[in-house]
Design a protein around this nucleic acid. Structure first.
Lengths: 172, 172, 172, 172
DNA sequence: GATGAATGAGTATTCATTCAT
DNA sequence: TATGAATGAATACTCATTCAT
């Protein structure tokens, strides 16, 4: 699965053939099929793992934060959690494309997961910025910005550091 | 080209075969190759046109706006220009994926175009919200939010209307 | 073997995978190979059993019939013995196909068995219709009609009830 | 198509791969697909041709026969028309198996064609054996015997010459 | 200008068989 | 006895690209 993930990162899921994965692993295609009944299943499992990692990170962060945190730090942390270590962001984008262009099971998984992340973010924001009531919207905005930033990062389009772009969102 | 665009919209660029395009056009694949030396070239030309349309729209809007506009309207207009009529947004995403997953020429084109859009937006914001000086960052943020919103729209992930998410950005 | 037979009945022998048989049995493919050295062997054993059943039925019938039997009943009984209960006929056809398309061992087995059945039929006809001397030919004709009827039944081609088609054969 | 037919004759339709056909033809698999969109289509076309040939032969025969023909000759002619030249019969059997084991389109085609052949045979029998009224049944019997004979011929099971087996059917 | 024919490398998937444990 | 893991060859089908006419 790590190998598959690595290859997906290079070229995206649908551009990666099972033959390539098998070859990289030094096993036969048949063996690959012994473990994963179809390519979709493999993609789905990788997605699952990817999302669970993010959710886990988010969760432990939400539980640890205190009230006197700088809100901008919050967003920066969250975005790093999702984009994390370059590869994770890349995978995220590829999985999104996979979901958008036909894979319904994946799309459903994304919908559920985003809802969960939104809830967690809301809860976290509540802790940090007490007294504000637009956390629902702000949580969604944060996730939106992160996805947009991800795309632009991969296009090499970014001009300013992410922190600068983020900060206006958390003001007032 | 219209036909190719229409098909790309349905399934994305790499999922659309030249045979399908030729068939839809009622011509032969051979003839298609008479006009476009490769599939990449075709994709590139479609991208070109797509971007020029947006740029044109943005340009005429920037020239027309007055100083007393509601800033939130600005962002809403811009996002509608890019996402326009559902289809344009879909194409945008598919082209982005194409660029990200290997097509370097396309990626370069995106970089240039985003820079141009950013400049235009900056100029427009300057007109609407005089006296502020963080327009550079705000312009980039707007483009980022639009890309993120695009993705989430296609995933069916969106919860609140775009306008609500946007408005905090343009506040103070 | 019962399980394998059941699956062969659904789709034919060459369309049934050993994995499917093993799964249905709740054992592993490895275990299947512990008992049968190859798929061909398994098919052969099933054929063996199928034929022995028919031969047995035919035998006990031949021994029991008296001279005053209606000859048409004879043929009807025999055909029912071979086609028996729908499933047996289906299996018969699938095994024939297997034999025809390459499996020489099976083909040999069929040749021997048909010869045996012919002899038994001849003997039975002799009992029922004394004084006739063309039983050799008639026995073969009966087996031929049964095979033809089997095919046509499976094609859904049959128009008249088998009995009507049969009766002219047994007339004088 | 001739080549495909020849190969189907050796091993049956589903045992013949498109790669084998292409290789035998000295063309690439791609080219084969240029002419036939799928293997099923190819099989169906071969079936079509096979059946049309038989139907044509039967037709011209029906039109030419006079009333004083020996009925046994009739059946012998018809069976030769269908089994004709060894290969035709083999193909017939393989197509039947293909139809039986899943190919619904083929099965439908068989049903229609058999009905047509039955009608033609009936008409022919009417010409040869005036005054008899069980031609409907006799026509079906003939087709049944032919199919049975076909199978047994391929199994190598036949003992008596076809003519001997046939003749009782046409008596009285 | 236009096309029909051809191709070769590639795709996901299947399956009978082997074998160390 | 039993099996989990592994395999390699095969299968139907796709597609961007080429090119002689």
């Amino acid at each position: 699965m790590d190998t598959a993930t690595r290859l997906f990162l290079k070229q995206g899921a649908s551009e990666t053939s099972l033959a390539a994965i098998a070859k990289e692993l030094g096993i036969s295609k048949g063996t690959l099929y012994y473990y994963y009944p179809s390519k979709n299943e493999l993609i789905f499992d990788i997605t699952e793992r990817h999302m669970n990692q993010i959710t886990g990170d988010l969760l432990s962060w939400v539980e640890s934060i205190g009230k006197d945190k700088d809100p901008v730090d919050v967003l920066e942390y969250v975005s790093k959690t999702i984009l994390g270590a370059e590869t994770r962001g890349k995978l995220h984008i590829y999985l999104i494309h996979e979901a958008i262009s036909g894979n319904a099971a994946l799309r459903k998984r994304f919908r559920e997961t985003y809802k969960e992340w939104r809830r967690m973010l809301e809860y976290g924001l509540d802790k940090v910025m007490k007294g504000k009531d637009d956390h629902k919207v702000r949580a969604e905005l944060i996730l939106t910005v992160i996805d947009g930033a991800l795309i632009q990062h991969m296009l090499g389009v970014r001009a300013n550091p992410l922190r600068d772009i983020i900060s206006p969102i958390m003001k007032e």
